[in-house]
């Protein structure tokens, strides 16, 4: 029983990292109708920035906060400089640009920091937490708390603020929004900023576990994509639930089903993508919108 509880919490911790990156994917997908393949590499790059800041003597939490700000600004700048020129091109063009970004950012990180795996300091205590007589890893619990707070803040931002509402409108109805005075181009840039900030958080949360190297986010991106598809690629809530479910399922399968183990987890994630797309193309939370003309 204790073991099961630990495995579930551990799965939730991993799942909340998938959820964060999945949310980043969904934010861009809703605004542009494409998957940003560079999302994971952006998260990796910003995690290196956090590492660099800790090397320069900044406490980890300060480095964390500074990195989130830098990631936000970087995401905005990237949209304005790289994506904006192709904003009106067809979606395949934009996808190819994000693939180009994937390769460039990966190469840039290798060039700056090398390919040798680096340890990343954990922002959480290393002693286990005792909850109800069960020892949980403080890292796991900390990751869950940080992710829940992040996702909660983002949800509040979109539901309760005028800017968040305008971003939703600009993503769904660009033409109509412009007529209302909303600068749709800037809303898109803010979306890239937010996505990249959330991605940075996922990178920093997972780096103490998987260690830092330029390819660290690649499998996470696949899990995040699986989570987004599972939840419904247009649904932020779906991305979060999809991430958590996937994290727990993958972790339990890997632990209790010997045939899967560690090696086949990624394959299991891919199998989940395929099955969901077959059974429910819109995903668990994807919905048909009601519209009268």
């Amino acid at each position: 029983m204790h073991d099961l509880a630990q495995q579930i919490v551990s799965g939730l911790a991993q799942g909340s990292i998938f959820a964060s990156l999945a949310l980043a994917l969904v934010l861009i997908y809703r605004a542009m109708g494409i998957i940003n393949f560079a999302q994971g590499e952006l998260a990796m790059f910003t995690t290196y920035i956090a590492w660099q800041l800790t090397q320069m003597g900044l406490p980890i939490w300060l480095a964390f906060a500074a990195t989130v700000v830098v990631a936000f600004a970087g995401g905005v700048a990237l949209e304005r400089i790289v994506i904006r020129p192709v904003e009106r091109a067809n979606q395949l063009t934009i996808v190819i640009v994000t693939l180009g970004l994937f390769i460039s950012i990966n190469g840039l990180a290798g060039w700056f920091w090398g390919y040798i795996v680096k340890a990343f300091p954990t922002p959480f205590p290393t002693t286990p937490l005792q909850i109800g007589g069960v020892a949980f890893s403080a890292q796991d619990v900390g990751v869950i708390v940080v992710s829940v707070v992040t996702l909660g803040l983002i949800s509040l931002f979109f539901q309760k603020t005028k800017l968040g509402l305008a971003m939703r409108a600009a993503a769904l109805y660009p033409e109509q929004s412009r007529v209302l005075g909303i600068r749709v181009g800037w809303m898109l840039a803010l979306g890239w900023g937010l996505a990249s900030a959330v991605g940075a958080i996922s990178g920093i949360m997972i780096a103490p576990v998987v260690f830092l190297d330029p390819n660290m986010m690649q499998s996470v991106l696949v899990y995040a994509f699986a989570a987004a598809v599972l939840g419904g690629i247009e649904s932020p809530l779906g991305a979060v639930v999809g991430g958590l479910v996937l994290g727990v399922v993958i972790n339990l399968l890997g632990t209790y089903v010997d045939a899967i183990g560690n090696e086949l987890r990624l394959a299991a994630a891919l199998a989940i993508i395929v099955v969901v797309l077959l059974v429910r193309p819109a995903g668990l939370f994807g919905r048909v919108t009601v519209q009268r003309v």
């Binding site: 509402l165 939703r168 409108a169 769904l172 109805y173 109509q176 007529v179 909303i182 009601v290 009268r292």
Partner: peptide, 15 residues
């Protein structure tokens, strides 16, 4: 130009 998935109030406040 109805923002059809949003509520009446959200439509108005975006105005």
């Amino acid at each position: 130009g109805t923002l059809s998935a949003l509520t009446v109030w959200e439509n108005l406040s975006l105005g």
